[in-house]
Design a protein around this nucleic acid. Sequence first.
DNA 1: ACAATTTCAGCGAGCGCTTTCTAAGGAGCT
DNA 2: AGCTCCTTAGAAAGCGCTCGCTGAAATTGT
Lengths: 362, 362
Amino acid sequence: MARTPRTADDGAVSRRKSAATLGDVATHAGVSPATVSRVLAGNYPVSRSARQRVLRSIRELNYVANTHARALAGVQTKTIAFVLADVRGPSFAEAAHGVEQEAARLGWLCLIGTTQGDRERELAIVRLMREQRAGAVVLIGGVADADDYEEQMTELAYSLRAAGSLLVLCGRPPLPTGVPAAVIGYDNEEGAYSIISHVLSQGHRRILFLGGEERHTTSLGRLDGYRRALATFGVEFDPSLVEHGVFTRASGYQLTKRRLAGKRDFTAVFAATDVMAAGVYAAVNEAGLSVPNDISIVGYDDIELAQDLRPRMTSVHVPYEELGRTAAKVAADEDHQRDDWPGLQVTLKTHVVVRDSVARLD
Amino acid sequence: MARTPRTADDGAVSRRKSAATLGDVATHAGVSPATVSRVLAGNYPVSRSARQRVLRSIRELNYVANTHARALAGVQTKTIAFVLADVRGPSFAEAAHGVEQEAARLGWLCLIGTTQGDRERELAIVRLMREQRAGAVVLIGGVADADDYEEQMTELAYSLRAAGSLLVLCGRPPLPTGVPAAVIGYDNEEGAYSIISHVLSQGHRRILFLGGEERHTTSLGRLDGYRRALATFGVEFDPSLVEHGVFTRASGYQLTKRRLAGKRDFTAVFAATDVMAAGVYAAVNEAGLSVPNDISIVGYDDIELAQDLRPRMTSVHVPYEELGRTAAKVAADEDHQRDDWPGLQVTLKTHVVVRDSVARLD
DNA sequence: ACAATTTCAGCGAGCGCTTTCTAAGGAGCT
DNA sequence: AGCTCCTTAGAAAGCGCTCGCTGAAATTGT
C-alpha cells in the first residue's frame, strides 16, 4: 500500500523507490498542484514564469503523470483494446498492425489480448477490457458458432457503451441496425465467389473445399461464395467435396493428405485461408504430385506467403491492414460518443490476385 | 467530467449511461462499500448472508470494478507491456505470443506497442508504458546503433524501477551486472557459427552474408558468428561478401538481385533472417537459377515459412515462443521487487535445422 | 486616481476504490 | 449476571489527479 507515509526526504531523485507525484512537482516549483496540472493540460492560462518553473521541476524530478489517477479524475484514456484469436496468424497480424499504426498516429495506446478461438475466453477478455475502461474494444476475426452471436454481441455493445467505450467488430458479420457498434468487414462470400469463378473458368469442375471449423463465420461465408459460383456455372454442389478442419498449416496438410490417400476425385483445392493452403502444397508435393498440373490450388487472404509458395499461389486479396486502420480511426473518433450515434458499418473490397497455381483444363 | 451530479434514478440498468459503482452495489445490497470491497477481495471475513446479497447485487447491476480506481488505491495492476518493432515479423509474433500466453495463464493483461525500429519512438513508448504503471516492460528484438545502448537501457531500468516496474530485454545484448533488469537472450553469434560451419562443411567457401542495418545488434551478432566460422575453417573473410539492408523480404530480394546482376562470385547465401531469405529465393528463382544447385541458401530464425519454401530451407531454430514465455514469467514473478534483486540473465539455446537448401560441393 | 475589467493562482471537492481503525453484538467463561 | 474475546460491520481517510469556483494582483479605461 501507498498508505505508508512517504519519508520526508527521499534524497536523490534517481533512486527513490516511488515516483514523484504532481504534488511533489508543485512543492518543488513553489506553486499549487492545480497549476502543475494546468501546465500539463495546457487548457488554462498560466504565467510564463510559473510554467517554466514547473517544467523545470518536472524534468528535475523525472515526473510522469499517473494514468490511473488521471483516468479516475475523468480524463478519457486513449487506449484501444483489441482481441484476436492468435497474434501469429499473418492476416490477423496485418490487421493488428493496421490498428496499431493508426492508433499510434493518433496518440493512442494499444492493449492486446488473445483468445485461441475460445468463445469463453473472448467474453472474459472483453470483460477485462471493459474494466480497463478502454476507449474502444476491437474484436478481430471470425467466430465459431453463430447461433447466439448476434444477441451476445448486441449485449456486449450496450454494456461497453455503458462503460463509455465502443465495440468494433472486424471481419465479422454485421449487427442489427441501431446497435451502438461499428462493424468493419469485407465480403467473404464475394471473394470466394470471384476466385472460384476463376477456377471454374479454367475448366475445373471438381473443387475440394477446405474450411475451418464447421460453424466458423469466416469459413461459412467463404463456403457460401464457393456454392454460389458453382451455381452460376451450373455445376452441382457435392457435399463430399467439403472438408472441415482449422485454419492452420497442419490442418490443411492433414486434410489434403487424407483426401489424397483415397480416390483422387478433384482437380483443384480451395483452401479457406492461405495458411491452410501452405499445408495443401506440402501434402500435394509429398504425394509426388505437381501443382498445378495434377492439382490446382487457390487460397484466401493473400498474405506474403502466397508469393513464396511455388508455384506462386492465386488468392483473394483482403485489405487487412486497412481493416485495422479503419477500426482504429472509428474507435478514436469521438463522434460515437453522441447519444444518437446510429452505429456504423463499413465493407471493404477484396479482389482476386491471379498467379500460377491454377492450371487450365481442356 | 464525471463531476456532473448523477441523476437520482437512472432507471433501467442496461441502458444507464455510466456503469454501476461499488457504492451503487453497496446501496443495492444494503451494506457499506467496505463490505462490497471485502467480498470482492475475499481477504476479510464477511457473513454468509451479506456476501450473498452483495454477489446478487453485483450480478443484477452488472457491476465491473474500475481498474483505475483500484490501481490508484494501491493494488498492483497486473499488466505487462511489450514493445517490438513490428507485429508482423513472424519471429517477433512468436515471441509476443509466448508473452501473451504465459501472461494470460498468470492472469495478467498485455499492452503492446510497436516502434517500427525507431529509437526515438521506442523511448516514447516506454515512457508511455511507464505512465501506465505496467508491472513490467518487455522490449523485444534487436536495436540499431549500439553506441549508447547500455547507458540508455541502464537509465531506463532505473527509471522503470522507480515507477515500480521491471525492464525485461528480449533478444538483446546483456547489461552490466547490478542493473535491475532481466535479459532473456539467445546466442546470435553461436547460431550463426553453427549454420555457417555446416555450410562450410559442405564445401562452400564463398558465402554471401545478407544482414540488416549495419549497426543492428542482431545483425552484428550473426555476422560475428559468420566470421568466426570462417576463421575456424581457415577461410579468409572477404568484406565484399557482406551486404546490409533491412530485415524484410523485399530487402533480401533487392540485395540478391543486385548481386546476381554482377559477377556471381559466391556459391551460398546466408540471410540473417528467414524473411529476408524468402526474398533471396525469389530473386534466385527469377534469375533462372536453381536452389541449391546453383546457389545454396540458409536463413536464421526457423519460422514456419522455412518449410514452405522450395527446397525447404536450412535454418537456425530460435525458441522465440519460449523466449516470450520466460519473459512473462520473470515479469510476473514478484521476486524482482526486492531491494537487493541482482538482475537476471538467461540465455536460451539455438540449433541448426538441416533441410534441403544447401548443396554439397565437391 | 479610482473603478471596471482581465489574468492567473489556489482552494477544495470529488473520481471509485482499499484498508485501518473503531465499535457493536454475540458467544463463551466464571 | 458480569466479564472477556471473537466475529463482522461501518466510518473515514487517502491514493494522485482535474476542474469549478473564488479571489488577489495586474491591467485597462475614464
